[in-house]
């Protein structure tokens, strides 16, 4: 009798484990292939999103309150500095406007309606972050209803931060660039070499210990100068052109003299996200 019950327990454990592994395999395949998660998953996510808003709002409110107290101390000196900068911004704004208009007219003359750099913006608030070291993921409060699609790039105020991996009706998940997930979708990026030629490549990884992005698959032999700006190249069909990624820190050459890896200091801070923008390419 003792033996029988032991066997029964073993069988139950095995079945539970198998179901667990199947679930994991299934949801990874959904994550990598399908446009949207299945119905049941979506309902759970909507419910989670609503409860999370109830819990998260007071907590984030507290955080903002402490931030504003801190901010109060710095306001005076900051104000002085900013006043000087405001004057220059006004002229820049006007210049920007004229350039934009000129660009529009030139495009019209060329009969170019859409270029790689045009995109629509969907602003969203970050609800919460996955409490895990292995998934660099945040949840935002905009979903399919607002027009977010899977694989859209996401930018913060300063630069590119990641890509949408799962879209629900009213919230979606974003995988940050700092992920070390093997199957994460990579960004096609470009920079200007020393003599002005365009060098293309891919963001292939992230160095956690140095907080640097790694650019690989580089196409050109041109010398790369330190501090050169890296932007998305618009190749691949989903990401618009010209989203700022970061600045070159150093380029490591391989045996044949090609720059094998370029280390990039990211423009955005992946750990300080409040408001992000989903950049939906228009075409």
């Amino acid at each position: 009798m003792q033996k029988f019950s032991f066997n029964k327990r073993l069988v139950v454990t095995m079945i539970i484990l198998i179901i667990g592994f199947l679930l994991i395999a299934f949801s990874i395949s959904v994550r990598n292939n399908r446009k949207a998660p299945i119905f049941v998953q979506q309902i759970g996510n909507e419910a989670g999103g609503i409860v999370d808003r109830v819990v998260g709002v007071p907590i984030n409110g507290l955080g903002h309150a402490s931030d504003s107290v801190k901010g109060l101390y710095n306001t005076y000196t900051e104000n002085k500095k900013l006043k000087k900068e405001v004057d220059t911004i006004a002229t820049q704004k006007v210049e920007n406007q004229t350039l934009k208009n000129e660009n529009k007219h030139l495009k019209q003359q060329l009969k170019l309606n859409e270029t790689l750099s045009s995109y629509s913006k969907i602003n969203a608030v970050v609800l919460s972050r996955t409490p895990s070291s292995w998934q660099d993921q945040v949840v935002i409060n905009k979903g399919a209803v607002a027009g977010v699609k899977k694989n859209d790039p996401v930018v913060s105020r300063k630069g590119l931060v990641g890509r949408v991996t799962e879209v629900n009706q009213t919230n979606s998940k974003i995988e940050l660039l700092s992920t070390s997930n093997d199957s994460a979708n990579r960004f096609a990026v470009r920079l200007k070499g020393k003599d002005g030629t365009v060098i293309n490549g891919l963001i292939t990884g992230y160095s956690t210990s140095k907080n640097q992005l790694i650019m690989g698959q580089i196409t050109s032999k041109e010398k790369i100068s330190k501090g050169a700006q890296i932007t998305t190249s618009g190749m691949g069909g989903i990401t618009p052109q010209g989203l700022l990624v970061g600045k070159v820190v150093r380029a490591a050459n391989d045996d044949e003299g090609l720059p094998a890896k370029v280390y990039i200091k990211p423009a955005a801070d992946f750990n300080d996200l409040d408001v992000v923008t989903v950049a939906r390419r228009v075409d």
Binding site: I19, G20, L22, I24, S27, P37, G44
Partner: peptide, 16 residues
């Protein structure tokens, strides 16, 4: 299950 649904998107890990 809710942890998996909402945070990771990979079901079955925290559920077990």
């Amino acid at each position: 299950l809710f942890f998996d649904l909402f945070y990771t998107g990979v079901l079955g890990i925290f559920t077990l």
